[in-house]
Amino acid sequence: MALNTPQITPTKKITVRAIGEELPRGDYQRCPQCDMLFSLPEINSHQSAYCPRCQAKIRDGRDWSLTRLAAMAFTMLLLMPFAWGEPLLHIWLLGIRIDANVMQGIWQMTKQGDAITGSMVFFCVIGAPLILVTSIAYLWFGNRLGMNLRPVLLMLERLKEWVMLDIYLVGIGVASIKVQDYAHIQAGVGLFSFVALVILTTVTLSHLNVEELWERFYPQRPATRRDEKLRVCLGCHFTGYPDQRGRCPRCHIPLRLRRRHSLQKCWAALLASIVLLLPANLLPISIIYLNGGRQEDTILSGIMSLASSNIAVAGIVFIASILVPFTKVIVMFTLLLSIHFKCQQGLRTRILLLRMVTWIGRWSMLDLFVISLTMSLINRDQILAFTMGPAAFYFGAAVILTILAVEWLDSRLLWDAHESGNARFDD
């Protein structure tokens, strides 16, 4: 018995066209964080690309023209004298008006014999932002004059995390709450300039795509075929072959399989920071003279006294001054041990922890910024005066060393310790 099946006739004509040209192939790229070699397709503007294995951002879609970056830099340069030299806060102490600005706080630190601690604050609040705007201006002028731009481009990517104007702005709020127990506070004209400078700096850093600047100024022929001998440069993120001198053909720094002496430098910085954190938390970090009496505060006791007036601000200072430094030390110690013992479990967790400490590390400088600003506000000789204690130097040095330890660690070593050939990683 035959089955009668109805015929289905399409209502619209289906047209099949042959592909007349070869589909576009992607360029081969190595991930600078996990060293995976993959094919990167062509990316349009405002599109980002991520590593298929570790999800690290390979290409950032946010990109401004150099002219727009230069305009932002010149605007920031105009704001800087007002943000640093004009009063941020006014207080009335014992019937006398006192003005506080950024430069005055750094000068008070240096004047009291601790120039190293003052230079830490100076670099993060004044030096690094000033280098940022002058570097962008150098790129703008240098591109037109045919100057060598490689050193500036190499420095810009590392400079971003040292620009800490946003953290200093939080420190202004913390210092205001600490001082309000002794005097009446009012915002100064410099505060508005400083807030504007923070906003412009944040926007500029978020749109400063150094890798795209490398592509514009020093374009290189990408690798179009897969080759395990391809290496990625950690300076400019170019994937290719080393030249005859073993250097990256684009930025001219040595092109090595792994960062040289990464573990040794990381261990040295980490152990030194552990040693410095002990006096930083045991010795007094601030000293207040009130009517001839002397009151010393460690980091913890200062947080407890701050909690009596504002528990939320005390929580912020606790996280930045105690929780973050010790968390960074514990995480980095764990990561280094996992590399030495070739741990194969929990790779995803370790990668996330490394990215976390990379982002939060700079916030530990908050305590030094609060001390710097408070020193310029309260300084009335023996009637009422505020000065920093010996722990300030140890704390600042420990924070900087932990930042350097994270920067010096080559994250690809975590993958080397893991089993080879993993296309995915999980716990």
Results as ranks from 00 to 15, higher is better:
residue 2 A to N: 13
residue 8 I to H: 12
residue 8 I to D: 13
residue 11 T to V: 07
residue 13 K to D: 09
residue 14 I to W: 12
residue 14 I to F: 10
residue 15 T to H: 09
residue 15 T to I: 11
residue 17 R to P: 13
residue 20 G to T: 11
residue 21 E to Q: 13
residue 37 L to W: 08
residue 48 S to V: 14
residue 55 Q to S: 11
residue 56 A to P: 00
residue 59 R to W: 10
residue 68 R to K: 04
residue 71 A to F: 06
residue 85 G to W: 07
residue 89 L to E: 08
residue 93 L to W: 02
residue 95 G to L: 06
residue 100 A to G: 04
residue 106 I to S: 02
residue 109 M to E: 07
residue 118 G to F: 01
residue 121 V to E: 14
residue 122 F to P: 00
residue 124 C to T: 14
residue 126 I to C: 07
residue 129 P to Y: 03
residue 133 V to L: 14
residue 134 T to P: 05
residue 135 S to C: 06
residue 137 A to C: 03
residue 138 Y to L: 03
residue 140 W to N: 04
residue 142 G to M: 04
residue 145 L to S: 06
residue 149 L to G: 07
residue 151 P to F: 02
residue 155 M to D: 02
residue 159 L to Q: 02
residue 162 W to H: 01
residue 163 V to P: 05
residue 169 L to F: 13
residue 171 G to S: 13
residue 173 G to M: 07
residue 196 A to S: 15
residue 197 L to W: 08
residue 201 T to M: 07
residue 202 T to Y: 15
residue 209 N to C: 11
residue 213 L to R: 11
residue 214 W to P: 00
residue 216 R to K: 07
residue 218 Y to K: 06
residue 220 Q to C: 06
residue 220 Q to A: 07
residue 230 L to Q: 09
residue 238 F to E: 15
residue 242 P to C: 07
residue 245 R to T: 06
residue 246 G to F: 11
residue 247 R to K: 03
residue 250 R to D: 00
residue 253 I to R: 02
residue 258 R to F: 05
residue 262 S to L: 03
residue 263 L to A: 04
residue 270 L to P: 03
residue 271 L to W: 05
residue 272 A to P: 01
residue 273 S to K: 04
residue 275 V to N: 11
residue 276 L to H: 04
residue 277 L to C: 07
residue 284 P to R: 04
residue 295 Q to S: 04
residue 298 T to C: 12
residue 299 I to H: 01
residue 300 L to C: 08
residue 303 I to P: 02
residue 305 S to P: 03
residue 309 S to M: 06
residue 312 A to V: 11
residue 315 G to C: 07
residue 316 I to K: 03
residue 318 F to V: 07
residue 318 F to Q: 07
residue 320 A to F: 15
residue 320 A to L: 15
residue 320 A to T: 11
residue 326 F to E: 04
residue 329 V to G: 07
residue 330 I to P: 01
residue 331 V to Y: 14
residue 337 L to G: 12
residue 340 H to R: 09
residue 347 L to F: 11
residue 347 L to W: 09
residue 349 T to M: 13
residue 350 R to H: 13
residue 352 L to D: 07
residue 354 L to R: 09
residue 355 R to M: 15
residue 356 M to D: 06
residue 357 V to R: 00
residue 360 I to S: 03
residue 362 R to S: 06
residue 364 S to D: 00
residue 365 M to A: 04
residue 365 M to V: 05
residue 366 L to P: 08
residue 366 L to C: 09
residue 368 L to A: 05
residue 373 L to V: 05
residue 379 N to S: 13
residue 379 N to I: 02
residue 379 N to Q: 11
residue 380 R to N: 02
residue 382 Q to N: 15
residue 402 T to C: 08
residue 402 T to V: 10
residue 405 A to H: 03
residue 407 E to P: 03
residue 418 H to W: 09
residue 420 S to W: 09
residue 423 A to G: 15
